[in-house]
Design a protein around this nucleic acid. Structure first.
Lengths: 254, 254
DNA sequence: TCAGGCAATTTATGCTAATAAATAGAATAA
DNA sequence: TTATTCTATTTATTAGCATAAATTGCCTGA
């Protein structure tokens, strides 16, 4: 038995060879989003292989989010910037078998959100500030229905997503958005029978209002400090909630 | 013109429908790595489509890292835990058109490494400590050749990667490893004509030694503090280096 | 009894040819 | 001008067949 689970080098499939060739070609020619790849027929000739093989290669590029494929004249594979949704989906697959817990997600969030807030502060346009204000105002009324409560939680998360998108650091932006998306899923799926946490919503609202003031004043230091407090608070409430849910589920099993 | 770049709902391709069906089926049945999917013939019957379509669907699942495909008896598509390399590659694609800069990468690193160090402290086995010690000892001799210098830098990075893998938070572990991989690429590719930074190597060595002591003493607070200092130091040296490289490249252009 | 090789089986891999569906753009009709 | 239809182009899907790879198990020879 060799140490690895997988057998050794293993033949590289024709379609994967084509994928690699195309990637190299794209990188070498400094091709940009919008540029078109040769159509299926030309690729068949270029790589001396059948249509099925070319289609597998294109499928691979499509799944990776590198191209989008259209039918019709001037159709074919067009280079695309990988959309966030694609990268997010693929990272979720990676995490599928080790489902990050709520506390794990919140721990990461506490690390990055203060920096995101600080970096975003000088980069927020007037429009951005308006959008943030609108998201806050959606949370100012007492929720009457369950769905309304969920909507408010999602508006809170969108507040953070917008900041992430403006922080100017692509990796930080991705992680920030991803983390908030994970929390959104927790809100929507795992906690549908969620007890109301009025204090929590209230604390969030206050922090978001104060943050907006800091953004308006272009005070990055204050934004960082406020966001840190906000995250500590949110982490605390989440721990409380997890405790309640555990009791709830344990109750069902007994 | 509608707001989106893409046209509206667009027919969903048969192969993508199959991918979604299979994913749902896997999730519903709580299938685990090692479980097998039906073979091509069975899938053709199941979904009433041709082999080409099934093959495209399987290719998609393979590219996403969810299955590996083997020939032979008991072959076919087998569920796999998505390997880190796959997720990493796909996230790199996402970042391809907005190439994170050195400072951006180091900024993220400074945020997460101290927490990783603290979380990993109680989780490091004796073996892990030995491995860390070995990685440190590789950096204790003065590098004589260029390649040796690169090797030492990579050993330094492996030190951090091991910590990330032990921190017990899957998302943090992924990001930690990814960030250090990005830095590895910077070291190998962008800076091949790298000026020696003796002070930098020396500072790193000292920090790693002190960190190891903290790990041995199971002192998470000390580990966090040391790692934070270490990251501030590394960020500083990297800024210095980027400045030198900019001068160097500007010099070539004029 | 056991090791090594051989062959059958299972499965993916790859190819060809033909038809269906979608789309953009040109031609046409109101 | 505007709306509609037509047409050419290109992907999407199907069907069937030949090849290659990997495993299982049998069989041979020591």
């Amino acid at each position: 038995m060799n140490g690895q689970n997988l057998r050794i080098p293993k033949r590289i499939k024709r379609s994967d060879q084509i994928v690699e060739s195309v990637k190299r070609w794209v990188a070498l020619n400094r091709m940009q989003p919008g540029d078109r790849l040769p159509n299926e027929r030309e690729l068949m000739e270029q790589f001396e292989c059948s249509k099925g093989t070319v289609r597998e290669a294109l499928k691979s590029l499509e799944v990776q989010g590198l191209v989008s494929i259209r039918t019709g004249p001037n159709g074919g594979a067009v280079l695309e910037p990988v959309p966030y949704e694609k990268a997010s989906e693929l990272l979720r697959n990676f995490l599928h078998f080790e489902q990050p817990s709520g506390p794990e997600i919140y721990a990461l969030r506490t690390l990055i959100e203060p920096e995101i807030a600080a970096l975003a502060t000088p980069r927020l346009s007037e429009d951005d500030l308006d959008t943030l204000a609108k998201l806050i105002s959606r949370c100012e009324t007492d929720p009457e229905t369950f769905d309304e409560r969920i909507e408010q939680r999602i508006a809170e998360l969108d507040f953070h997503v917008l900041l992430a998108q403006r922080c100017g650091n692509a990796m930080l932006a991705f992680i920030g958005r991803f983390v908030n998306d994970m929390i959104r899923d927790l809100v929507i799926f795992k906690k549908s029978a969620l007890p109301e946490q009025r204090e929590f919503s209230c604390a969030n609202l206050t922090y978001h209002q104060k943050l907006l003031e800091a953004f308006r004043a272009k005070d990055a230091a204050a934004a960082r400090r406020l966001m840190h407090e906000h995250m500590i608070s949110a982490e605390h409430f989440n721990r409380e909630l997890e405790g309640q849910l555990n009791q709830y589920f344990l109750g069902i099993n007994h």
